[in-house]
Write a protein that binds this DNA or RNA. Structure first.
Lengths: 191, 191, 191, 191
DNA sequence: CATGAATGAGTATTCATTCAT
DNA sequence: AATGAATGAATACTCATTCAT
């Protein structure tokens, strides 16, 4: 028990996922290689195949982990029993917060999704393309609150502006309120 | 045959650029390699280094070519002598047209810009970040026509929605008018 | 369930052998790997080493099993009390039947025998090199029935033609009698 | 000229082919790897791809080289203007000589042809399956000289016995005449 | 008996770049 | 201007085997 530290086995899986995440954030998905993640964790390259069937499965695992984070984030912030307008505005605010506090998560999802031969199935998606969100938007349209266009346009506005906001805040020293951006979004999507 | 050997140089350069473009469009920037472009043009791999110092310079050259196309597109469509509101609306419409007719060009610019260690300098940019456009937006803000936020937000809205519109039209069989999208954009950016 | 755990051992051994056989038949000996056989049987890769010291021992075991099948086949078909000519002809006919009905067995023996560093000792061998058969041939030679050459030549003729016959029947839709082939063999070996 | 020994470029191709041949003879086709051949020639592994598109193309090249040797061998030994029986017997004798003097060549052809996913097209083949030879056999059958069975049986007898003869001579210190073997073959194939 | 973890060596192939000719 | 040759590093993935639990 004292000199046998072998219990951490499952931990290796986590460490590999973290290594992959780190590489994606710093150098992009294309830079993720079995060699690199293994080296970062301090194991032999071939061991990666003990924990993941494939490089694809490794990346898919990263994707699902980050996706779960996003889902938890929204679940915690949007009260499904509230009225529609409230929920729509809550979604926009949640997105704004997410884009800033979970920038890395967003980047990772974006990168894996945009891969040439992405391992991510079409159904899986970025938060902005999420089925639930799309349904929410559609409800807004049906209720006459949102403009009657394909809901994907609404999602594009929200996601695009919110990402940009976060980018300016993080990478360009921009320090302004989210309020005016929220206003832009609402003016764009609302009837 | 004997004395027109000089022309081939320029021709080969163009051919290489075209080969790179083709690969970017079909398989993404990551798939561009000196081996492939050389093979496509029918020259030895090492010859690529006669026409371009680097692979980076090749991609940069592709980038500048496409950027020039975009610039020409706007120059032809926006009357700089018209009043500000007219110019702003003309810009939005031009963007809408560009996104559809020059989808490949946009894709190429996007791809090269998004590269992990992009050869594109920060000043260079997507049309939505263009200095001229940014100035136009700033004028709109100063004139009280556009919302008083960083002009990059306005550009994000225009570019994002217009790209999405084109994507739906091209890749998802969407067949609707641009008008409602133009309305969304204007509602977002206008005071 | 509690007290019949001992049986599983033998069972797993057999299953592993069968897995190896299947791979050899479908993809050749080179395709046999501890990883694959273990996966086919549904056990951990390392468990293969519980049942077999080596990959070589696994293959050797497969070899011996198939060899035993062949031996049983001949024992059942050749009456050792019959006169020499009868036994020789019975051997040829048995070989003809074996090649067709036990094609897989022959293939497996052949494949393992032909391995670059075959685990099969020189004494062990294909049926055509079998000690018993060789002795039978020698008797034929001594009795003046077969041509006075190394008995291995006689075995080569029998085995080669019979394998070819089976190959044409199985893989090339050939549908002819064995009789003319038996005649070819006899003409070749008989004085 | 004195210190520039770079002229030997084409020679490298030959050296690589020879390295592949050597490995096939000593350890079988399966043992051929780009790493090994490159090391044997003293170049970087990646250089193999300068001379051959593929490992398959390397092996195919080896195959064609050896095949050409065999063809030349037969062309030099069989007088196509001689009468049929003479040509048939000449073929058998040529085969006997070939099997002994070109043992390695036969082994190489055999090994490459027997590969799990052989790069050799079905039309290409071992000398014993050669179109020309098959035609010769067919002529013999039509002329009533050879037994009226599929010509591949005749070829099997010739090739099989001749290979065995050579094997005994080379690997088992057998030192007998070819004459009795020739007689066995003839008795088998002739009417 | 069974397993998961580990490893090092091996596989074919692609790449950007350099250089002498 | 053009090329063929060369290289070293990188890629994902498989393998036989060992060992502590």
């Amino acid at each position: 028990m004292i000199n046998n530290m072998k219990k951490k086995d499952t931990h290796k899986t986590e460490q590999l996922l973290q290594a992959a995440r780190d590489i994606i954030i710093s150098d992009g998905v294309a830079a993720v290689s079995t060699t690199k993640v293994a080296k970062m964790v301090g194991i032999a390259q071939s061991n990666v195949y003990i924990y993941f069937k494939n490089k694809d499965e490794l990346l898919l695992s990263v994707f699902h982990h980050e996706q779960a984070r996003v889902k938890a984030f929204f679940d915690a912030r949007i009260d499904q029993t509230a009225d529609l307008t409230t929920r729509l505005k809550a979604y926009i605010d949640a997105m704004g917060e997410l884009a800033v506090t979970e920038w890395d998560t967003m980047t990772i999802l974006e990168q894996i999704k945009a891969m040439p031969h992405t391992p991510v199935a079409a159904e899986d998606a970025l938060p902005s393309d999420d089925q639930t969100v799309q349904a929410l938007m559609q409800d807004g349209i049906d209720a006459g609150i949102l403009k009657p266009v394909d809901p994907r346009f609404h999602m594009t506005v929200v996601f695009g502006l919110v990402r940009r906001y976060s980018d300016l805040v993080r990478n360009h020293g921009y320090s302004a309120e989210f309020a005016p951006i929220r206003a832009m979004i609402w003016d764009a999507v609302a009837v």
